[in-house]
Amino acid sequence: MKKIQGTEYTPLIEQVNPYQQLWKVRVKLDPNEDGTIEYMEEEFDHIPTEDEIKKYVIAHYNAMCNDVIQSGLKYNDEIVWLSLENQHNYKMIYDYAMLNDDIFPIKIKLGDALNPEYYQFESIEEIKGFYNSIIKHINDTLCDFWSKKDSIDWSEYGI
């Protein structure tokens, strides 16, 4: 899979070499400020089946959704890295704090690996606010990508 630049007229599926049966399937990304459009593109050495096209397109949206979940949340203007491990850790901290208010202060690392920022929570209310922002971010992101997947015009792929 690679990223390419195109226009609104770039076909989402096209045979690029009839002698080698080379086909390309593309997923349209957001337009750039200069009017060009980026696409993610996958090559097939055969005519892709309807099932292969759908699996590729859906897998791409799922990967984009995961990326937004992992790195799309900010708390106090710092990135909250929401890997599955961190999501589990934040849930564990939240659950424990709800049962035992004697664990404060709690310190967590925000930012990215190159620019870490440490934040210290002093109360249950702060932990609730932080954890609620995580849940809202994940839910909003899932809903957004469900909507995007539901609105795919498969006819643009000849399906």
Results as ranks from 00 to 15, higher is better:
residue 68 V to R: 02
residue 87 Q to F: 00
residue 75 Y to H: 14
residue 50 E to L: 00
residue 78 E to V: 07
residue 66 N to T: 08
residue 91 K to C: 11
residue 55 K to G: 00
residue 101 D to A: 12
residue 84 L to K: 09
residue 108 I to K: 08
residue 58 I to E: 07
residue 93 I to Y: 07
residue 69 I to V: 01
residue 94 Y to T: 13
residue 79 I to Q: 07
residue 103 I to G: 01
residue 48 P to T: 04
residue 59 A to E: 15
residue 71 S to Q: 12
residue 84 L to E: 13
residue 106 I to N: 00
residue 48 P to S: 11
residue 75 Y to K: 06
residue 69 I to H: 00
residue 103 I to T: 10
residue 73 L to F: 14
residue 46 H to K: 09
residue 91 K to S: 10
residue 88 H to V: 11
residue 89 N to M: 10
residue 91 K to E: 11
residue 96 Y to L: 13
residue 102 D to P: 02
residue 86 N to G: 01
residue 110 L to E: 10
residue 99 L to S: 04
residue 53 I to T: 01
residue 88 H to P: 00
residue 83 S to L: 04
residue 69 I to Y: 00
residue 102 D to N: 14
residue 110 L to W: 07
residue 101 D to L: 01
residue 55 K to L: 12
residue 85 E to L: 10
residue 110 L to Y: 05
residue 99 L to E: 14
residue 84 L to R: 09
residue 108 I to C: 07
residue 85 E to S: 13
residue 100 N to Y: 14
residue 89 N to V: 02
residue 103 I to R: 10
residue 102 D to I: 05
residue 107 K to E: 06
residue 65 C to M: 10
residue 79 I to T: 12
residue 64 M to Y: 07
residue 70 Q to D: 15
residue 50 E to M: 03
residue 47 I to E: 14
residue 82 L to F: 12
residue 108 I to A: 00
residue 76 N to C: 11
residue 60 H to W: 13
residue 43 E to L: 03
residue 100 N to A: 06
residue 74 K to P: 08
residue 104 F to L: 02
residue 103 I to Q: 09
residue 69 I to S: 04
residue 86 N to M: 04
residue 107 K to P: 02
residue 104 F to N: 06
residue 86 N to R: 03
residue 65 C to L: 13
residue 49 T to I: 06
residue 76 N to K: 15
residue 100 N to E: 03
residue 66 N to G: 04
residue 101 D to R: 11
residue 71 S to W: 11
residue 109 K to W: 08
residue 89 N to W: 12
residue 59 A to F: 11
residue 107 K to S: 09
residue 94 Y to V: 00
residue 75 Y to W: 15
residue 83 S to D: 04
residue 91 K to Q: 12
residue 81 W to H: 04
residue 58 I to H: 05
residue 71 S to M: 11
residue 76 N to Q: 15
residue 64 M to D: 05
residue 110 L to M: 05
residue 65 C to H: 02
residue 70 Q to E: 15
residue 99 L to D: 02
residue 66 N to E: 12
residue 59 A to T: 09
residue 83 S to W: 00
residue 66 N to F: 03
residue 87 Q to D: 07
residue 74 K to Y: 09
residue 90 Y to G: 04
residue 50 E to A: 05
residue 60 H to L: 08
residue 69 I to P: 02
residue 66 N to M: 06
residue 57 V to A: 07
residue 78 E to N: 14
residue 110 L to S: 03
residue 106 I to Q: 00
residue 54 K to D: 09
residue 102 D to F: 01
residue 97 A to V: 06
residue 76 N to R: 15
residue 108 I to Y: 05
residue 62 N to C: 07
residue 72 G to P: 09
residue 82 L to Y: 06
residue 95 D to P: 08
residue 66 N to H: 01
residue 80 V to K: 06
residue 58 I to K: 13
residue 77 D to T: 09
residue 82 L to R: 01
residue 48 P to L: 04
residue 71 S to G: 13
residue 89 N to F: 08
residue 103 I to M: 01
residue 84 L to A: 11
residue 66 N to S: 10
residue 82 L to H: 02
residue 77 D to H: 12
residue 108 I to T: 08
residue 49 T to C: 03
residue 61 Y to M: 03
residue 45 D to F: 15
residue 76 N to D: 11
residue 45 D to T: 10
residue 108 I to G: 03
residue 87 Q to T: 07
residue 58 I to A: 03
residue 65 C to P: 02
residue 57 V to C: 06
residue 46 H to E: 06
residue 92 M to V: 04
residue 74 K to L: 14
residue 92 M to E: 08
